[in-house]
Design a protein around this nucleic acid. Structure first.
Lengths: 256, 256
DNA sequence: CGCATCCTTGAGGGCCATCAAAATGCGTGG
DNA sequence: CCACGCATTTTGATGGCCCTCAAGGATGCG
């Protein structure tokens, strides 16, 4: 059926999830084709790997086709997770306009990525302003998610941060029609979660126990099961509007 | 003298600080003129005011000409500061491509702003791809700063967060040739700083005392004085590369 | 000179880090 | 199949950072 992900992936196997559930409906067939054809190489990485490194300059950008990656910044001793990506995300469009990178991109579990040369992106900027705006939009989504993470870190305890992260990942997966109604598969470890929460893995473990005992969500190796969606979102102070999905569901009611 | 801020401001009074110290040298005279002329109205706001509100849709974007603004997100009880802007920043280019806003823009002290209609921005997207890329670049700078804040919040104590914030503000002011060699003027209160640190104003007060006693930096009503730049940056784990300034100074050495 | 806002200090308690140690699951090779 | 190594997960005890509640001092403005 036209409009479904299956239909999109049949025609655009590498970029069919790009902006799905958001502004993909605003893309013309021509634009979808241009983007799909911009990918000159596809790679499958089965082991965790740092595919982009802080400080370096690249002449391509990366589309995440399958799997998960983490955007990280290294500290003196620890690694810090500053954002998370799901299939359909253009993970480092940032390095197109910024040149050198201020962060790393680390894969988590098995991943399939597509590479787009910056030369192609420059052509798109020059010849297809509407598509260019959509690319811009996708980087602004990243910025909006970063802002939410800043607020989350300023406001929430570790258990609530985890609830927020689970809510966000689940919501984003559902927008690209991954995961299911009871939760999602993920290769994330407790240590990865700790990197994203600014906590130790030891404390994350206790916080996960709290979520389990409250019957909110359950983390097992390789899977997150949501026991109570409403409670999860409430506990994690999650309101999906910052993800700019389609439909009224994603309009935050707003606090008084 | 050509190239100095004074010379730029003489010709482009409202936009002469845009990307100064970063990619402004990459802007042609024509592009500078287009941007300056895109501002259809200038306003001076003497009292703290929320100039952009979460959830609303705007048909203009805002250039900060003088003064400071805070990008905030409201919680149930508290306000959270997710970023900070200095003169020359295009504070809400985000709302051009995102439509509705996921955050607020609050002024701090007296502020002068210029408004740019989105219609003009669409024309720039269509007719001036290079200038469009520079606008994109400026929003990516915001994203890079958000990432650094995420890391800062995951990693640092309140006193160190303050050191980081002071370092960042000072560095950004110097790029647009504001502030001076010993520090900078600012209308920020301890309560504003608390909103940016995810701490209470009470604790910020104690943390400022620590910076004072360590002879690192001094906060008085309306002014931050840096006593020891090297110590400030070290204590706050500040490395300026994420601000993408010109020159080798801003290239992080990188951790082993 | 009264009021509002901002700054400062003290006491008690909760969240989370650190140090230490053990249990579990998983793949490899004998 | 079992032994082993390794990463991941789990639990306990102690202490530091920061929150809350409470109160008072400074500063600026009408």
């Amino acid at each position: 059926m036209p409009g479904t992900i299956t239909h999109e992936l049949a025609r655009f196997p590498n970029t069919g999830r790009f902006l799905a559930g958001r502004l993909r409906h605003d893309m013309s067939e021509v634009e979808k084709r241009i983007l799909e054809d911009a990918i000159y190489e596809v790679a499958v990485l089965d082991k965790p790997k740092r595919i982009l490194e802080h400080g370096k300059v690249y002449d391509h950008s990366t589309m995440l086709i399958e799997g998960f990656v983490l955007r990280t910044i290294d500290g003196e001793e620890n690694r810090y997770g500053v954002s998370f990506h799901v299939p359909g995300d253009f993970v480092d469009l940032h390095c197109f306009a910024l040149k050198r990178l201020d962060h790393n991109i680390d894969t988590i579990g098995e991943v399939k990525v597509g590479y787009v040369p910056h030369k192609k992106l420059r052509e798109i900027m020059a010849d297809h302003p509407h598509l260019a705006r959509l690319l811009w939009f996708s980087t602004l989504l990243d910025a909006a998610m970063h802002r939410e993470w800043v607020m989350k870190l300023e406001q929430l305890t570790t258990a609530r941060r985890l609830a927020h992260i689970f809510s966000e990942i689940w919501c984003r997966l559902r927008m690209v029609e991954l995961g299911d109604e009871t939760g999602f598969e993920t290769p994330l470890t407790q240590s990865d979660l700790a990197d994203m929460c600014g906590a130790t893995s030891i404390h994350v473990n206790r916080a996960l126990k709290e979520l389990r005992e409250k019957d909110i969500a359950q983390f097992e190796r390789g899977r997150v099961t949501i026991r109570d969606k409403r409670q999860l979102e409430e506990f994690g102070c999650f309101q999906a509007d910052y993800l700019y999905g389609e439909g009224a569901i994603h309009l935050r009611e707003g606090y008084a």
